[in-house]
Simulated assay, not measured.
Amino acid sequence: MNGITLTLRALHHGERHLARHLTAVGERHSTDHEVRHVATDLARWSREHAERLADTAREREVRLVGLDGTEPPGALTALREKAAEAMGHRPEPGLLLLWDLRQLHLAAAGNSLYWEMLAQAAQATRDDTLLALASDCHPQTLRQMRWTNTMIKILSPQVLTAL
């Protein structure tokens, strides 16, 4: 197993994790329509990244675990939705949202570093397939980071000074 294989595995895991977390945050903060809708869209990007990474790994005869990266609907989803409704009526949801945005930002930043590493390795090995993958997906990961950073900048003054 070489470094590129390890990076593909780590990035696949990171994108799946980010997709699940974005989905959970969208459900948890469903009363905030912007957060819900943008988080859902950004989760779709991460799921697509994970699928493309899985395809690339498969072409290289590398097996990745849990290729679908989705969470089955069920009781947990319903529980999250009810919790979001209940939290919408308490003063703490702003702090929870800031914490969630911070976690999302850190996860996206980790993925961004892996995309950069993969792109650099692709350039060094003249692997056009890997370079195209990184060139297509990394900008969306950077967009995920910009969204979380912008939301943190917007919400922090309101939430942190209201305590």
Score class of each variant (00 low, 15 high):
residue 71 E to W: 06
residue 72 P to E: 14
residue 78 A to K: 11
residue 134 A to C: 01
residue 102 R to V: 05
residue 115 W to I: 00
residue 65 V to R: 15
residue 139 P to V: 00
residue 9 R to D: 14
residue 151 M to N: 03
residue 147 W to K: 01
residue 85 E to P: 02
residue 143 R to S: 04
residue 82 K to P: 12
residue 114 Y to G: 02
residue 84 A to P: 08
residue 149 N to H: 12
residue 92 E to K: 01
residue 141 T to S: 12
residue 5 T to A: 13
residue 84 A to H: 08
residue 137 C to D: 00
residue 53 L to S: 04
residue 47 R to G: 01
residue 54 A to K: 05
residue 104 L to G: 14
residue 82 K to N: 13
residue 60 R to L: 02
residue 103 Q to K: 05
residue 81 E to L: 15
residue 43 A to N: 05
residue 108 A to V: 02
residue 72 P to T: 07
residue 136 D to I: 01
residue 162 A to K: 07
residue 66 G to L: 01
residue 72 P to H: 10
residue 85 E to C: 04
residue 116 E to M: 03
residue 94 G to A: 09
residue 155 L to Y: 13
residue 4 I to K: 12
residue 124 A to I: 06
residue 128 D to K: 09
residue 122 A to H: 04
residue 5 T to W: 09
residue 46 S to H: 15
residue 10 A to P: 06
residue 88 G to I: 05
residue 29 H to W: 05
residue 150 T to I: 04
residue 148 T to N: 04
residue 95 L to G: 13
residue 71 E to D: 14
residue 90 R to M: 06
residue 129 T to M: 07
residue 73 P to M: 07
residue 133 L to P: 01
residue 128 D to P: 04
residue 76 L to A: 15
residue 73 P to H: 10
residue 154 I to F: 11
residue 102 R to Q: 11
residue 64 L to Y: 09
residue 61 E to V: 03
residue 92 E to C: 06
residue 135 S to V: 13
residue 18 L to K: 12
residue 118 L to Q: 00
residue 34 E to H: 08
residue 23 T to F: 11
residue 131 L to T: 08
residue 38 V to F: 03
residue 113 L to S: 13
